[in-house]
């Protein structure tokens, strides 16, 4: 099958690549760009461990082809930190014990990043709703909500 050329901006860096059409975005990120913070948990679009932000929207990178992101802007967990400074959400997960094994964390962070960009004063219900596509097997979710609330408060204060 003919390869497709794509030009894509990932975490602020331009990449040009030749990809097979069937290459999934998550494999492109993990194998081609070696950005392994984006995880694979289920293969069937259920867990959200592979969530990335494309042009401001959180989507599951296991349910997209790399060919589809030609000309688009992607943010992965590796791009959240700016100039050595953690994003408030990253701090939140850290401070509020929002992670145990950490495998779901990048997906939770990316979902939260897109969500808080549009709403820095969310209610607990809104947070639970926003994150309902992400699966965590360890934490019991309570602290993940707290981590979001922590980040929202910091963002309201102008943390970033």
């Amino acid at each position: 099958m003919a390869k497709i050329e794509i030009n894509v901006r990932v975490n602020g860096v331009e990449h040009r690549a030749e990809v097979e059409p069937r290459l999934l975005l998550v494999h492109f990120l993990r194998e081609s760009l070696r950005l392994t913070g984006t995880h694979i948990g289920c293969d069937t679009s259920h867990c959200g461990a592979c969530t990335v932000v494309i042009d401001g929207r959180a989507v599951k990178s296991c349910t997209m082809f790399a060919a589809q992101v030609d000309g688009r802007e992607i943010l992965t967990v590796e791009g959240l930190e700016r100039d050595g400074k953690l994003h408030p959400l990253q701090e939140g997960f850290f401070q509020e014990h929002g992670l145990q094994c950490g495998y779901c964390t990048p997906g939770m962070l990316m979902t939260g990043y897109a969500f808080l960009n549009g709403n820095t004063a969310p209610t607990e219900d809104e947070i639970r709703h926003a994150i309902s596509g992400n699966l965590c097997r360890c934490t019991g979710y309570v602290n993940i909500v707290k981590a979001y609330q922590y980040a929202a408060a910091r963002l309201r204060e102008g943390g970033v």
Partner: peptide, 17 residues
């Protein structure tokens, strides 16, 4: 806080996979 929490929230931690 988790001692190496920073590696986990920045995606730098390398799991076996």
């Amino acid at each position: 806080p988790k001692v190496d929490g920073r590696a986990f929230v920045t995606g730098k931690h390398k799991y076996t996979s």
